[in-house]
Design a binder for these strands. Structure first.
Length: 563
RNA sequence: UGGCCCGUGGAGCAAUUGGUAGCUCACCAGAUUUUGAUUCUGGGUGUUCCUGGUUCGAGUCCAGGCGGGCCAGCCA
């Protein structure tokens, strides 16, 4: 693994594994699995689980399987299978030859169900879904037995076989466990394990089956079949663990994996729920699953987040059972850390303001040296053209300002990054009074040298007007205005908190000519602005589109905010 | 008058299993800087949810509270 500078910090799950290893539980093996349902795209919460499961396998010299939990053909789709595989790989993990589907085990699962019936531990129930709900009781009241609970093994066997043979319509019958209708744990009140689904084409098994097993039954047995030792899942499955164990104990499987639950990841100002992400996509609040504003792995990738940054993030957030909401700042610091080290430096002007250097010869062009990375000489130099007309950023000029503003002021001086010091002599405005152009002069003695007898503290970036490439730059802001849009006091639908300004498109930017060679996905630091990457779209229309991954830390913005 | 789980600075996690609270992010101050970036230095901003108890000693153990999360799909 290329990205594992430091090992993941220990956590309670690793402690359990250490103890298991010491006692030689699970024959001293460590075998985990990442079990996504292919009903949507992976998001950063899944990254936490992927890093946990694959990370543990790596560190303990064990194995980690990729297993699609595909027991609900109504919701699942091959498109998602493809996307999920791509995302796991991109994140930096390898399941080698261990790609599985729960549907691979449909026959075995069916046979286990038959075994359960034979043991008198499961029965076919004719109650409708609504009736089952009524019979189930409530959190504080016990349920009551289904009238079909005492069917004979023989009858159950026949009925179940007929279910499989397609003799009954959807919803007319279900196979249930026979455990305890009075259990305080609802999962133990004869939960359903097989339902009838006609007329759906399963992406893996086609029309071979018209009965599909449920999660609780499928998951533990799939784990057992694969010889998983530690089955890691999120907290909401805690109540399911007794059922997980019940199936394996009752069916006396050779392996009995250990289910361990940890808390999900919540990130401020976004949502990490597949259902809600799907809703944002479907209702058109964003432009697809890979919209750079989304915390999906596809979106983060397109935004310019790196696998290394996400891995670091997953290490830093840790693993516990406590509910938590991580600040966006932590994620951002992880990308900045990676990109500061690895991204090439370039210059780009986001809000162009034309500057004419009056004492610079009309037809002269100088090619100046600029470091690709100021702290890494091995990345070499590039040549950047300078000519009489350049663009600087509107925000880097003020007609007048306090001494704190160390950029260009009318009558003042500033250094052009990697070039000369210029002085602003004249401010040109249009009829509305907007500044449209600056007339400046440059000091030819200041290339790579400080001017005589005076200090120039400010440095601003620029591009040569005749050489620069026009580009579109997309700036992203938080998708929601509320830190926890799905859990607010007002109890409104989370979409009520969508940030209307989450996307700012700057259509008239100028980027340095060296960027002509960039290919989609390439990442750069646009000096003094932030980290950007070339978007995959746009090129077809002959447009250069850059996505801002994250801005540079901006202490000037803080100073300004205070005053 | 249900069951299970959780509770350490603003955030996320640690604390050799009973030895006097630490790390990262954020934040504040300063130094360096041809990126107001990076880097470096300094700063703790904590009643370890509360109240009792055991103990020489409790974030860790016990009891009782309080606060929060999850569970009544033929979803996963």
């Amino acid at each position: 693994m290329s990205n594992s500078e430091k090992p993941a910090p220990s956590n309670f799950i690793r402690s359990i594994i250490d103890a298991d290893l010491a006692l030689n539980t699970h024959e001293g093996r460590v075998h985990t699995r990442f079990p996504p349902e292919p009903n949507g795209y992976l998001h950063i919460g899944h990254a936490k689980s992927i890093c946990l499961n694959f990370g543990i396998a790596q560190d303990y010299k064990g194995l980690c399987n990729l297993r699609f939990d595909d027991t609900n053909p109504y919701k699942e789709n091959i498109e998602y299978v493809t996307a999920i595989k791509k995302d796991v790989q991109w994140l930096g993990f390898d399941w080698e030859d261990r790609l599985y589907f729960s549907s691979d085990y449909f026959q075995q699962l069916h046979d286990y169900a038959v075994a359960l019936i034979k043991k008198g531990k499961a029965y076919v129930c004719d109650l409708s879904a609504e009736e089952i709900r009524e019979y189930r009781g409530t959190l504080t009241e016990p349920g009551k037995a289904s009238p079909h609970r005492d069917r004979s093994v023989k009858e159950n066997l026949e009925l179940f076989e007929q279910m499989r043979a397609g003799k009954f319509p959807d919803g007319s019958k279900v196979l249930r466990t026979k455990i305890d209708m009075a259990s305080p744990n609802m999962n133990l009140r004869d939960s359903a394990i097989y339902r009838i689904r006609h007329g759906v084409v399963h992406h893996q098994t086609g029309e071979e089956w018209c009965i599909y097993p449920m999660y609780d039954f499928t998951h533990c047995l799939s784990d057992a079949i694969e010889g998983i030792t530690h089955s890691l899942c999120t907290l909401e499955f805690e109540d399911h663990r007794p059922l997980y164990d019940w199936f394996l104990d009752t069916l006396e499987t050779t392996h009995h994996p250990q289910q361990i639950e940890f808390s999900r990841l919540s990130l401020q100002y976004t949502v990490t729920s597949k259902r809600k992400l799907a809703q944002l996509v479907e209702e058109g609040h964003v432009h697809g699953w890979d919209d750079p504003r989304l915390p999906t792995l596809a979106g983060l990738r397109r935004r310019g987040y790196t696998p290394a940054a996400l891995q670091t993030f997953c290490k830093r957030i840790g693993i516990t059972k406590a509910d938590n909401t991580v600040e966006m700042a932590l994620l951002e610091s992880c990308v900045r850390e990676d990109l500061d080290k690895n991204a090439m430096r370039r210059m780009a002007v986001l809000h162009p303001l034309k500057v004419i250097i009056e004492n610079y010869p009309e037809d002269k062009v100088e090619l100046l040296d600029a470091a690709n990375h100021p702290k890494d000489e091995s990345r070499g130099l590039r040549k950047i053209p300078l000519s009489r007309e350049i663009y600087i950023d509107t925000n880097d000029f003020r007609e007048e300002a306090s001494r704190k503003f160390k950029r260009l002021v009318a009558g003042g001086e500033v250094r052009l990054r990697n070039a000369y010091v210029i002085r602003c002599n004249e401010v040109i405005k249009n009829e509305q009074g907007d500044i449209i152009e600056l007339r400046c002069s440059y000091d030819p003695e200041t290339l790579g040298a400080n001017p005589e007898g005076r200090k120039v503290k400010g440095v601003i970036h620029w591009v040569s007007a005749q050489h620069a490439l026009p580009a579109e730059i997309r700036l992203y802001d938080r998708l929601f205005t509320h830190p926890t849009p799905d859990a607010t006091k007002e109890n409104k639908e989370f979409t009520a908190y969508l940030n209307p300004d989450s996307l700012h498109t700057l259509t008239h930017c100028y980027i340095e000519s060296n960027l002509a060679e960039a290919t989609p996905g390439d990442q750069f630091q646009f000096e003094r602005e932030g980290y950007f990457c070339l978007d995959v779209g746009g090129l077809s229309e002959g447009k250069l589109v850059y996505n801002r991954t994250v801005g540079l830390r901006d202490s000037w913005a803080k100073i300004e905010q205070k005053s």
